[in-house]
């Protein structure tokens, strides 16, 4: 197996004591390619992704990334690790009242002093890169537009560009297409895969659309009841497995 970008060991998360959402999850994520996590609603897909960059506090276990155990970090060292982890959100989570360019540059905020950030003084290299990424995601000429004037698909393009601005060693995506129509969903997934490959960033993505996962992922992880019940290539994911992940069978017909 190729180099490992992320190693999750025995990760458990309980929001309420004694009621685990995730139970002793262990996963190795390779340094390239797209890994999709599928599973029914409420099974902890989002929680798993958010534990990786500590937007959610894990209850126990380890998360190794960039030579650190992320679960043990806080303050400045945690922010240093977060700078290296890009994230794409279901509802894009752009800062609505800022321009597209400001949203892209916010991907560099971990490297810029507050006064310079306030005065919008970013290094010329960052600005140059932001314009290049805008071209790459197909939003040339949108730099000065405010984020709230964009359509859903355009917003997610900005979201992907913002994450790649961080120059991350890992890209997390939490249901990146769930708020989009089917056609746009495919375009966004293709963009994310191509951009990640182009910049050699491994992707860990949550999704509930099994077909989309099959089409774009190199590896699929099936999560059910807070544990991994499937881990393999898309073509290995059969109907019997899907029944086990989601339960029941009438929805498959």
């Amino acid at each position: 197996m190729a180099e490992t970008a992320l190693r999750i060991v025995d990760l458990t998360k309980e929001y309420r004591r004694g009621v685990p959402v995730l139970t002793r999850i262990s996963l190795d994520i390779a340094a390239r390619g797209t890994t999709a996590i599928i599973g029914p609603s409420g099974t902890g897909k989002s929680t798993l992704i958010r534990c990786v960059n500590r937007l959610v506090e894990p209850t126990s276990g380890q998360i190794h990334f960039d030579g650190h155990d992320v679960t043990r970090l806080s303050g400045a060292p945690l922010r240093t690790v977060r700078r290296r982890i890009g994230m794409v959100f279901q509802e894009y989570n752009l800062v609505e009242r800022l321009t597209v360019m400001e949203n892209l540059l916010s991907g560099r905020l971990g490297y810029v002093a507050p006064l310079n950030a306030w005065l919008r003084r970013f290094p010329p290299g960052d600005i140059e890169r932001a314009f290049e990424l805008l071209d790459e995601v197909g939003l040339s000429g949108f730099a000065q537009q405010r984020a709230d004037s964009l359509s859903g698909g355009q917003r997610q393009r900005v979201g992907i560009a913002r994450a790649i601005m961080q120059n991350p060693g890992l890209l997390l995506a939490d249901e990146p297409t769930s708020s989009l129509d089917p056609k746009t969903s495919v375009e966004i997934m293709a963009l994310m895969r191509d951009a990640a490959n182009h910049h050699s960033i491994p992707v860990l993505v949550n999704m509930h659309d099994v077909e989309l996962a099959r089409r774009f992922a190199d590896r699929i992880i099936g999560l059910s009841g807070g544990t991994v019940v499937f881990d393999g290539k898309p073509e290995e994911l059969g109907d019997a497995m899907l029944m086990q992940i989601y339960g029941g069978q009438s929805w498959l017909q």
Partner: peptide
């Protein structure tokens, strides 16, 4: 959500305020 996204980039507290909170 907007604050969370800015925080996820590794931004420090003041930068989160300047880019995630103040614009809103």
């Amino acid at each position: 959500k907007q604050v969370e996204a800015v925080r996820a980039t590794g931004a420090g507290f003041m930068n989160v305020i300047f880019f995630g909170v103040l614009p809103q």
